[in-house]
Nucleic acid binder design. Structure first.
Lengths: 334, 334
DNA sequence: TTGTAGGCGTTATCAG
DNA sequence: CTGATAACGCCTACAA
């Protein structure tokens, strides 16, 4: 492998000059530039990125931590991050946190020890304090799907309240008035905000929120089926079911079908997130689109702008969810 | 950040000794070892991985190239790779090839320029010759889901013929004799082998393969619906439909339902791959499990063994698919 | 605009 | 078993 030194020899210049034409930061005369470029070409020179990193203290790599590699979010998020970063010649180092406090911290330390220039984190268990402390270190961090007030400039999040509102508004507008709700774990901010949006939509139409038709699930399929079971046991009537995410909606739909419901005739169901399989369910699931890929891309852009000094990138920290209407909901027929 | 030099000072030894206790390759007396370890502890010393790489010519990183980040395979494959590698202190650099020849080559060059110690590739478009040439370079490559005879020791693949056989055998054993088949693109080896297995299963039971009930799809949902449309247009009777992957099965099922079929009463459908959403379809899809995660893990193990000299790892290059019985198939009722 | 030289933090090869 | 010391390949003041 040719080194910068050989290039400089062949081009008849000093090695510093070669370095300059590579990094384009100092003016080099056109003539010498050409000589150097030619020499590089001839030798098939490729800079050694490790040596570059050691000397410049920049690795051109950004670390990504996600909870699970096989979760529905990850792939889309990654797709957004990778393409943006790759186009800029940066690379992406991946690791997982498995939604456990210590494993998330482990992963973060691992990435830092790898000298990543920045971290994009999708963490669930680690505390706000930890993150605040971490942000004081020299590796900048960016948070996806998590909002910490002290770090708000580095947070990319979805307007969950708006999403919850849009979901329930669409249900209300279809004439439903007896509406059940399966929430996510209320310790999670996104779950709380989705519920808040739901209540707001009801309130706007003067529909009272019925505590008896509320169930707190776990964001998993099983929470959906258990939730519907619970709700049916109340013997209260309801024509629509709002779920705080698609997994729970899918669990609920399965349970409903197994118990003789025709969907959506007997029950309208709406989810949240628009994960890929939402479109494969039967009936296809009406849901709220969660633009994870765009959020990933935005995280990458923030890194490019703030860490790598790219210019003119449109930064947006809060994303707006949108309603995706499919076949699992329909107007209330009395 | 403390350097190895400061550690050596505090411990009162040379920096070479410190390096030795870190790398455990040369014997160091217990006393000095302890002194060094203590000093490290006191200073909170963390080795600089970049400097290590430059000096040792090893980056402890392995590059991964997949076609698409959001494909159904990727997440599972990654999960397998990442956990194995991470446990060994190696990290994973990701990039994508988008199933296009030049982009795949680009990605590979990118990873090599990053000085990855090895590459794990899930490539579809690049030619065998390219891969053979590539393998002569100094970065070892490992192939997932692709078999190149000249590189067979570095290939991890599924026994697709067996999978195809198992799928059709289960259909045949349920009493179906009029069986339609929607294949994958026959330019792809896996698609061909799955078909081969299908024919073998038919042959075993003396059921003739009916060319008129054969359709070559594209491995996408749309290929499944178009395929079924085509097959129905033949007016030939068939009670079961074998699809070469789950996407096509899902497309076919959707088409069937929209055209008044009751599933599985009117038509048994079987897929291949057992992607996550197979279990969310309605009815849930009987399919052939493709152990992508294990294959990913195995790729990681091969790298650990061959590149990083780990010992005692069980290596297995060919994986066996298994039948997953769900609700989309049932015995033929005449 | 260009060259010189020191440094980045390790590893690895020699002697001792 | 341990210590010097030369790589590793590049960046970046500082000088010219």
């Amino acid at each position: 492998m040719a080194t910068i030194y050989e290039v400089s020899e062949l081009a008849g210049v000093s090695l510093a000059t070669v370095s300059r034409v590579m990094n384009k930061n100092t003016r080099v005369s056109e003539k010498t530039t050409k000589k150097v470029l030619d020499a590089m070409q001839q030798l098939g020179y490729k800079p050694n990125s490790i040596a570059q990193s050691l000397a410049s203290n920049r690795t051109n790599s950004v670390g990504i931590l996600v909870s699970e590699l096989h979760g529905p979010f990850f792939a889309q998020m990654m797709a957004g991050i990778e393409s943006a970063l790759r186009a800029a010649g940066k690379h992406v180092i991946i690791t997982t946190g498995h939604s456990e406090d210590d494993k998330e911290q482990d992963g973060i330390e691992f990435l830092i020890s790898r000298k990543c220039d920045a971290l994009i984190l999708h963490v669930e268990s680690v505390s706000d304090e930890y993150l605040i402390e971490l942000s004081k270190g020299k590796t900048p961090i960016y948070l996806i799907n998590r909002y910490v007030d002290e770090l708000k400039d580095n947070c990319i999040s979805l307007d969950n309240e708006l999403g919850g509102y849009l979901a329930s508004k669409s249900i209300v507008e279809q004439g439903h008035t007896n509406i059940a709700y399966i929430a996510g774990p209320q310790v999670k901010a996104d779950a709380r905000n989705r519920l808040k949006g739901h209540k707001k939509a009801l309130h706007e139409k003067n529909i009272p929120f019925n505590d008896a038709l509320f169930y707190e699930g776990d964001f998993n399929e099983i929470g959906g089926s258990k939730g519907l079971e619970y709700l049916l046991n109340t013997q209260l009537p309801f024509s629509a079911l709002v779920c705080a995410n698609d997994e729970m909606a899918s669990g609920a739909m399965k349970y409903a079908r197994e118990h003789g419901f025709n969907l959506p005739e007997d029950l309208s169901v709406i989810g949240f997130d628009n994960v890929i399989f939402a479109n494969y369910l039967y009936p296809t699931l009406t849901t709220i689109d969660n633009p994870v890929e765009e959020m990933g891309e935005m995280a990458a852009k923030m890194v490019l702008q703030n860490v790598y000094q790219f210019k003119n990138l449109n930064i947006n920290r809060v994303f707006e969810p949108t309603l995706i209407t499919r076949d699992s909901t329909q107007a209330f027929l009395k």
